[in-house]
Design a binder for these strands. Sequence first.
DNA 1: GATCAATATTGACAGATGTCGATGTCTGCT
DNA 2: AGCAGACATCGACATCTGTCAATATTGATC
Lengths: 118, 118
Amino acid sequence: MSKSLLTLTPVETAACCSPLLREPLSLDQAERVVPLLKALADPVRLRLVSIVAASEGGEACVCDLNDAFDISQPTISHHLKVLHEAGLLDRSKRGVWVYYAVRREVLADVAALIGGSA
Amino acid sequence: MSKSLLTLTPVETAACCSPLLREPLSLDQAERVVPLLKALADPVRLRLVSIVAASEGGEACVCDLNDAFDISQPTISHHLKVLHEAGLLDRSKRGVWVYYAVRREVLADVAALIGGSA
DNA sequence: GATCAATATTGACAGATGTCGATGTCTGCT
DNA sequence: AGCAGACATCGACATCTGTCAATATTGATC
């Protein structure tokens, strides 16, 4: 875990499986993870993440993303904002274009939390 | 992956990381995974899963779950239904009591999909 | 079979969410 | 300066979602 969604004690780290499955999540912990899951829990956003991740150089221009869907440009922009604000996508402006890149560590953290090595 | 949220070809299986990060998710694939993420993307439900998983014998009675939250019994029942229908919780009735158990393979599938070995 | 306790279902309601069209804000170009 | 293209923001709308109180259902017990 890079920045750690959960704070782990040595004992916990050594145990069998992911924190989610090992011990009851506190309200605090849950509320730290849920925004990330919410951000991913939409077909358009999940595909956006996937398309960005699978793009050359690990990043994609918004213009390309718009073409990949049948929904309006403002809606794509909105979804990208949600993903960015959740911390799942990095944003960098180069000239007129805006590029998004997947923060894989964050995604890995979420994965480790919910499924770990179950 | 137990029942496979995604169908993988040998080539894909051999690659670097999770399907989500390796190649664009199809609409079909996204719509198969999203219900699971939606089910997890709620603080109460995420904690329910966690509490059930961490319980003795890997299962928990609804009565215990009710006590663990400050929300009404019908609401807990509703959340358990959502988790059950998403395929994340198994349900078994014994006498007057209903027990829920986490389907860890499903959780592992989701984790493998979104974070794999990123 | 009457009653009680454990869950589920129903109906209602406020608030969140996905979508759009219209418009705003940059940036590069002529 | 002015224009055109890329992206974001705004305002509106319909739908979805979490929650509750009230009620129904089911199983055990007297």
